[in-house]
Amino acid sequence: MDGMTEIRWHARAGQGAKTAAQILALALLRTGKGVQAFPEYGPERRGAPLRAYTRVADRPIRRHDSVTDPDVVVVLEPSLVHEAGVAEGLAPDGYVVFNGDEAPPELDEVVVRCVPAQRLASKLGSGFVNMVMLGAVAAELGEPPLADLQDAAVETLGRKVAADDVRRALSEGYAWLN
């Protein structure tokens, strides 16, 4: 990962995109990277389309503008391809990590990595779609190591959730694209 990598997360408010963006940043921070994670605040209501961002670089990040041309787009909620312009501004060598078995026609023009996160999360019985997707994103980025990501997620999510479920969801997604 040379220079800066910018990741844009698409989800509906309440699906854990902001949290996933922060966990990725925390895990990468622990590996010595410069990081930044922030959501875009529009009409934030549960169910409304929401964007969150993770920036990562080999040096401290100083810029404080929004991400306009992401290297990676993560689509946590497949229905958003119809309304949210998910491929907008995607860098020429960028790609989309999509929650689904196959890429929808709306994403014909861009490189798509499919992760059936919904199905994988139901199979695990925990419903951590965002963690499955986060695991897959880390595998595709080549960092951070799975164990670091798992530690960062358990630390961030705290005692409200079962740590083993979080670790399993992350490793399931990680294995899918690794």
């Binding site: 925390l26 930044q36 605040y41």
Partner: peptide, 12 residues
């Protein structure tokens, strides 16, 4: 501190 840009952005 700048609203959202700093108040709500996670940084080291």
């Amino acid at each position: 501190l700048d609203g959202f840009t700093i108040t709500h952005s996670a940084e080291p």
